[in-house]
């Protein structure tokens, strides 16, 4: 298939914090325009992997190719061009707490204002557009501290999609949202892809998101990619680790308390 050009490739990524070895050789390719969902137990290193991609952490060893260029040896200045391609929704939102909702969402566009030549009116229009997309109406002037957890998450989402980057990385976009909102975010992720051809990397614990968004699912287990497959195959998997994760069954070791 022609559409399957690899846009991002992780090669043998290893990362330890002190004695704790978190990533032990991740190999993963992500195709242009696909939605790849990453699952795995809490603390298995999903967020760390994503932060390696945009250079917030450097791996201990391994290579990460974005559009064919290895980003691991890049310095902050060289990373700029990579970061402009990749939007990220942080797990904790990471909203700027001295800015209003509107200012947070407008921030990426204001930053590249000189380059993209947007007028203030165009930016305001885009802000309203993306805030509507995440169903935040008339909340423009609230401060992040005045928002609920789910609302913060949606503002963070709006801030990541406003630039329409080539790749959007969602770190648990639906955790803490009600089921209806979760469904609407899942649809938003699909829409971003269908409408703009954006490649999505979604980290989630939500099986609904897995089955409604994923083209492929990667499961991280013990610092490696344990399985990488289509979601239907995963559901039918005979592998105990995969099966237990999807069905939410804890092994005996976990209930020893």
């Amino acid at each position: 298939m022609n559409e399957q050009t690899t846009i991002i490739r992780f090669e043998e990524i290893k990362k330890s914090f002190g004695k704790q070895s978190v990533l032990r050789g991740i190999n993963l390719g992500i195709y242009q325009g696909e939605s790849l969902v990453i699952i795995g137990r809490s603390g298995c290193g999903k967020s760390v992997l994503l932060k390696n991609l945009i250079g917030l952490f450097k791996p201990d060893s391994g290579r990460i190719f974005v559009d064919g260029r290895d980003v691991v040896p890049m310095n902050e200045k060289e990373m700029v061009s990579v970061r402009q391609k990749i939007g990220i929704v942080f797990q904790g939102g990471a909203l700027f707490d001295s800015f209003t909702v509107e200012e947070n969402v407008a921030f990426p566009l204001l930053e590249e204002k000189k380059k993209n030549g947007y007028t203030d009116a165009e930016i305001a229009e885009r802000v309203t557009e993306v805030l509507d997309a995440v169903e935040l109406h008339n909340q423009h002037n609230k401060m992040p501290s005045e928002l609920s957890g789910g609302m913060k998450k949606r503002v963070a989402l709006a801030r990541a999609i406003i630039r329409k980057p080539e790749v959007i990385v969602y770190d648990e976009p639906t955790t803490g949202l009600d089921p209806i909102m979760t469904d609407s975010i899942n649809k938003l992720i699909n829409r971003m892809r269908e409408k703009y051809g954006i490649t999505s990397i979604v980290v989630t614990h939500d099986m609904k998101t897995v089955f409604s968004c994923a083209d492929r699912v990667a499961m991280i287990h013990e610092g490696k990619i344990h399985t990488l497959d289509a979601p239907e195959k995963l559901r039918a998997s005979a592998d105990t680790i995969v099966h237990n994760f999807i069905e939410g069954i804890s092994g005996d070791a976990d209930v020893e308390f």
Binding site: I54, L56, E76, R83, F90, A94, L95, F96, E111
Partner: peptide
Amino acid sequence: MKISEQIDALRALAVY
């Protein structure tokens, strides 16, 4: 700002 990942967010948005 550091512990709430706001500085990471700045870097991720290609701001030094």
